[in-house]
Design a protein around this nucleic acid. Structure first.
Lengths: 234, 234
DNA sequence: ACCTGAACACCGTTCAAGT
DNA sequence: ACCTGAACACCGTTCAAGT
């Protein structure tokens, strides 16, 4: 958890050019301008480099070229900073899913599939950012209005899509709550297996992760769809 | 990540009774006896109380009644201590699963189901210990012979069970690798949703978590089994 | 052989003082 | 209004010195 000796590349403050003879009204030799934004970006970068726990307020401050105490004028705590990072990540995540859905098929079950594929696609390509928005302790979902509303939106979307698929007779099972939780557990589990480095142990190489993701989603959906036919149980 | 002011209950060294007039050969007023064991137990307890990141070497030392440097005579680093904790947890996990399996049904698909139920039962009841053995960064699986061999055993068991179920005609799909990865993603995902506090958002209360776990496992298995009947695809 | 206690380099966080 | 810089209480880790 604590970095022993290594400590990241740590560009020792990039010698911020300090505008010689600052008399222009827009000059900011002391005040930073938009430190809040800069700190979030620095933290996002740190997350990308070494995962959520690689974020330290001091390192973010260093990269922003300010003193260790400065960030606390904008965020009351490290957790609050992580919160802002999570909101940023969640926004990107949701945007990509909605784009995929807009370009995808129109039948409900097809949309459900598309939802799962887009979910895993983003999670597999942005593992550290995905980790930030899903791991408790890194920040508390319930304490962030932005993240949880974005998330509730996704949950509701899943719910609607499945209900439509059922009405359209594309799904056999009646217990839709169970179906959507199983579906979510499936994709979340696969995403986390990736994050937590389990996939190699299960014989899935990095390069085939996305294909496997599609495979298990289709397997799951096939299981649901088969329930439709009057085959019942022999 | 860093605890600000709170700091755990922290029994300020429990005044270890120091055996008046130590002249018995077995007396250990200075040497601890089995510090290694005591440190692991303390760390296990800390994990139980506040999750993996609540473990600090210093706090474990405090609870063991030794100085901050003492643990490093037994573990080269905090990670090594976490490793020992993970091995302990993994051993308990595996033991419980094997017990359940020994008492369970004999048909392959029934055993597969039993495997999943036992997995989630333990994970739901020991969330923090489960977190230790599954989350990367807390310790690296590949660096621990004990944990990964225990784990490989479980993977192999899943593989055998599924192969038998297929041979017995209990499963329709031929792609068994896909099936076992989907199965694992399902249970791992549900376990992590619990750990990460997602379940309430999905309408699953703590009390009904185990029932829901059984529900999604059965749903998944039903999907596999239905593929068996000659109903094919209408 | 094992443990102590003081060190060192890191954190998060606070706060008076500066601009 | 925003930032600095020194402080404080925590870490992990090392190491001479003690038993």
């Amino acid at each position: 958890m604590r970095r022993p000796v290594e400590s990241p590349p740590a560009k020792r403050r990039p010698a911020k050019p300090r505008r010689a003879a600052a008399r222009v009204p827009a000059a900011k030799p002391y005040h930073h301008g938009d430190l809040r934004r800069v700190l979030i970006d620095a933290a996002m970068q740190l997350v990308g480099e070494g995962g959520p726990e690689a974020v330290s307020v001091r390192e973010a401050a260093r990269r922003a070229g300010v003193s260790p105490g400065a960030p606390f004028r904008h965020f009351p705590s490290r957790d609050a900073l992580m919160n802002a990072v999570a909101e940023e990540a969640q926004r990107r995540f949701r945007a990509e899913i909605e784009t995929a859905l807009a370009e995808g098929p129109v039948d409900p079950l097809g949309r459900f599939r598309c939802l799962g594929i887009a979910y895993l696609r983003w999670a597999l390509r942005n593992p550290t950012h995905f980790e930030v928005i899903s791991t408790r302790r890194i920040f508390d979902h319930d304490r962030s209005a932005g993240v949880s509303s974005d998330n509730a939106e996704l949950i509701a979307l899943t719910e609607r899509t499945l209900a439509e698929a059922f009405s359209a007779g594309q799904i056999g099972t009646a217990d839709l709550k169970q179906v959507r939780i199983a579906g979510r557990a499936l994709v979340y589990g696969f995403a986390r297996m990736h994050i937590d480095g389990h996939l190699p142990r299960w014989g899935v190489a990095e390069a085939e992760a996305e294909r496997m993701a599609a495979g298990i989603i289709d397997l799951f959906i096939a299981g649901l769809a088969r329930g439709t036919s009057p085959a019942a149980k022999v």
